[in-house]
Design a protein around this nucleic acid. Sequence first.
DNA 1: TTGTATTTAATGTAATTACATTTAATTTTA
DNA 2: TAAAATTAAATGTAATTACATTAAATACAA
Lengths: 154, 154
Amino acid sequence: MGISEDLKQSKFPSEASKAVVNAIYTGNWIVQQQQELLKPFGLTVQQYNVLRILRGQQGNPMTVLAITERMLDKMSNASRLVDKLVEKKLVLRRECPQDRRAVDVLILPAGLDLLTQVDQVQNDWGKHFDALGVKRLEEMNQILDEFRTVFSHN
Amino acid sequence: MGISEDLKQSKFPSEASKAVVNAIYTGNWIVQQQQELLKPFGLTVQQYNVLRILRGQQGNPMTVLAITERMLDKMSNASRLVDKLVEKKLVLRRECPQDRRAVDVLILPAGLDLLTQVDQVQNDWGKHFDALGVKRLEEMNQILDEFRTVFSHN
DNA sequence: TTGTATTTAATGTAATTACATTTAATTTTA
DNA sequence: TAAAATTAAATGTAATTACATTAAATACAA
């Protein structure tokens, strides 16, 4: 039930290339699960992530740029993601008083409510991973961090 | 330089939710790097993966369905990906003699040549990860496999 | 100050993806 | 066998993403 079986690929040129494929595959696997969870709420994974980022600000506004820095997928267009959330009346967009180039984005009560609902489903889903144990999960976080960090130390 | 710093998020509700975010983030991080590597070759990451899958067949054709099963991102449309590769004259598409519903796809010498070129760049890039050591990379593969597998054993 | 460079966000667009539907071929079942 | 169900791939479409460009505001430098 490892990556080899999942992708029906018996051998990889190296352990490193296997790890690369495994990391991409695992990331996609999670995103696809989350996509399913979020479908009933009418949210895409990216919209959900932006909402969570805004909630993390405890009621304080964030500029679009600040949101971008915190997004899991830096490539997608925060400006248009915010558009969608404004359409759904989950967030508020207003000119930033300190810097009129910037735009402040603020989560609305409706957005917080929706997140609360999603949290229920999300928590149940996440419970599966508790079976691994905190120690093993810490190892996973450690090793993924190492994997990215080894790049800077070249 | 861990995930907390990368996403400027000081705390996570649990180690599991941190691992979920970390896995998605790491996967995206790799994909974005690969995107950059592939840009000069005019290939998307998905197209590159399909080409590698076809190369793995050692000259044998594969149906579109078989390709889909081996793709890292199951969501994308193998039929249209193959279209693009046919346009670029990197693969050949022909009716499968055994089953006329199916379509055989075969990598062409031009496709193999292109992959050889990409391999050069890709190998250099992948070398960064060798610094982790084979043992650590094996641990990473092991733990990612566990992470996905724990789901089936609920 | 004034012109230049930089920063921030929005927008235009082409390509890709998500999702549902369609078409054609094969398999199953009555 | 004929009808129904299933399978494989392609297609239509709406939404999203990738990438470049634009517009506006601010910072900087001459």
